Amino acid sequence: MAFETGSYGNPAATNQRDYWRVTLQLVKRAKVDLAMLVLMSAVLIPLDIHLKDWLLSTRAVAVLGIAMSIFIGFRNTQAISRWWEARTLWGTVVNKSRVWADGLRGLLSEQQWRSERTQQLVQLQVAIVWQLNFQLRNFWHPDLQLMRQQLLDQLALPDDSTVRSLSVQRMMGIQKLAEDQWIHEWGRKHLLEISDAMTDAVGGLERIRNTPIPPPYDLFVRVINWVFGTQLLLSFESQGSALTGILLFFGFLIAERIGAYVEGPFDQDGSSFSMPLNTICVGISEDLMPRELNYGRYRPSRNPVFWD
């Protein structure tokens, strides 16, 4: 039975041919750690050192390896949890943005819906979403920043508007609709609930951005990883298999670093470690203001290796 392909795009997925790009991203991020590993290997392996003065017992190394696996596993689990919570909160932003436009459309008459006031309320929600994107990451694609400025100009709002000031404008808009009796009390409550849900999502995203994993824990995991890796290197060197020790050290090092990178879902490099915020915001914009915004040279990607 033949199937036809639609126009909605395939689900986001990493292709095997892109694995080398992910590897390059890892190497770029961990270049300092990898340089230190190369330097340590170059210094320790050729030296005729007394290994018994440096090596722990075999049992101690085994226990240290178990502890290291637990710490790395815990860190990576927490990192993925932070990343997924951020994605869930952005899912709330997407849904509430749609409900905001649908709620206005359902509460107002056709004439009221087409009015400049109502369309500005829809545009205001889009402006809030883009401003949240920029504030979380503190950087932007130049063409998207220009689009944001043009949107704020249409709303007669200053260029230095923040998520908070735009949210206040949204609440004032709700108040004005109620005062002019465009919406009844139930409709006002419905719009306020949407606004409250958006505020909760924004607060959660700001918490993730501004609260990293506690520095003492980060330092402890890194130090114990290097201690364990050094012991692996020396242990396999004493058995005449230094390359095996280096590769195992490299594996533990990268595993620990992946957890550290995923902990920051709003990083600036636009790599597969960060979230596709521009792509999400373009989706919201097209839902609420189809074909009205000019994104310039920016084109969203559904490839997790390239999204930003």
Score class of each variant (00 low, 15 high):
residue 285 S to W: 02
residue 267 D to C: 12
residue 243 L to D: 08
residue 255 A to P: 00
residue 164 R to W: 00
residue 60 A to V: 14
residue 284 I to Q: 03
residue 51 L to N: 11
residue 147 M to I: 00
residue 111 Q to G: 14
residue 220 F to D: 01
residue 117 R to V: 06
residue 289 M to E: 05
residue 301 S to G: 11
residue 189 K to Y: 10
residue 215 P to M: 11
residue 1 M to L: 03
residue 294 N to K: 03
residue 175 Q to V: 13
residue 251 G to I: 06
residue 48 D to Y: 05
residue 62 A to V: 03
residue 33 D to H: 09
residue 225 N to V: 05
residue 303 N to S: 14
residue 249 F to L: 13
residue 283 G to Q: 09
residue 168 V to R: 08
residue 45 I to S: 07
residue 279 T to I: 07
residue 260 A to Y: 04
residue 209 R to G: 03
residue 141 H to E: 10
residue 24 L to M: 10
residue 91 G to M: 03
residue 62 A to W: 00
residue 78 Q to R: 15
residue 207 R to A: 11
residue 294 N to F: 06
residue 216 P to D: 03
residue 240 G to K: 08
residue 301 S to F: 09
residue 184 H to R: 08
residue 111 Q to S: 13
residue 234 L to N: 01
residue 145 Q to F: 08
residue 303 N to P: 01
residue 177 L to C: 05
residue 199 T to Q: 15
residue 167 S to V: 09
residue 57 S to F: 10
residue 45 I to L: 12
residue 287 D to T: 06
residue 167 S to F: 06
residue 123 Q to H: 13
residue 228 F to V: 04
residue 60 A to H: 09
residue 202 V to G: 01
residue 266 F to H: 07
residue 1 M to E: 01
residue 169 Q to E: 14
residue 94 V to S: 15
residue 47 L to I: 07
residue 253 L to N: 11
residue 64 L to V: 07
residue 48 D to H: 07
residue 21 R to M: 07
residue 126 V to D: 01
residue 186 W to D: 15
residue 224 I to Y: 02
residue 178 A to D: 11
residue 118 T to G: 01
residue 282 V to D: 00
residue 186 W to G: 02
residue 125 Q to L: 02
residue 251 G to N: 12
residue 22 V to H: 02
residue 204 G to E: 03
residue 273 F to M: 04
residue 56 L to M: 13
residue 248 L to T: 12
residue 308 D to V: 15
residue 282 V to Y: 07
residue 54 W to F: 12
residue 123 Q to P: 01
residue 289 M to P: 05
residue 12 A to K: 11
residue 24 L to N: 06
residue 170 R to E: 07
residue 40 M to A: 07
residue 115 S to Q: 11
residue 48 D to G: 04
residue 153 D to N: 14
residue 208 I to S: 04
residue 266 F to Y: 10
residue 225 N to T: 14
residue 139 F to S: 11
residue 241 S to F: 12
residue 36 M to I: 05
residue 60 A to F: 02
residue 174 I to M: 12
residue 224 I to A: 03
residue 252 F to L: 10
residue 305 V to K: 00
residue 71 F to C: 10
residue 37 L to Q: 14
residue 47 L to A: 11
residue 158 P to M: 05
residue 138 N to H: 12
residue 251 G to E: 04
residue 241 S to D: 12
residue 125 Q to V: 13
residue 26 L to C: 06
residue 65 G to M: 04
residue 46 P to R: 08
residue 68 M to S: 06
residue 113 W to C: 09
residue 128 I to N: 03
residue 69 S to C: 09
residue 156 A to Q: 15
residue 261 Y to W: 15
residue 200 D to P: 00
residue 40 M to L: 03
residue 266 F to P: 07
residue 110 E to F: 02
residue 162 T to M: 07
residue 185 E to G: 01
residue 276 P to S: 10
residue 185 E to R: 00
residue 82 R to C: 01
residue 283 G to I: 04
residue 53 D to M: 12
residue 247 L to G: 04
residue 69 S to R: 00
residue 102 D to F: 06
residue 266 F to M: 06
residue 14 T to V: 15
residue 72 I to M: 02
residue 55 L to F: 08
residue 217 Y to D: 02
residue 159 D to Q: 13
residue 101 A to K: 14
residue 249 F to T: 10
residue 133 N to Y: 08
residue 224 I to F: 08
residue 106 G to C: 05
residue 139 F to L: 13
residue 295 Y to C: 09
residue 284 I to D: 00
residue 153 D to V: 11
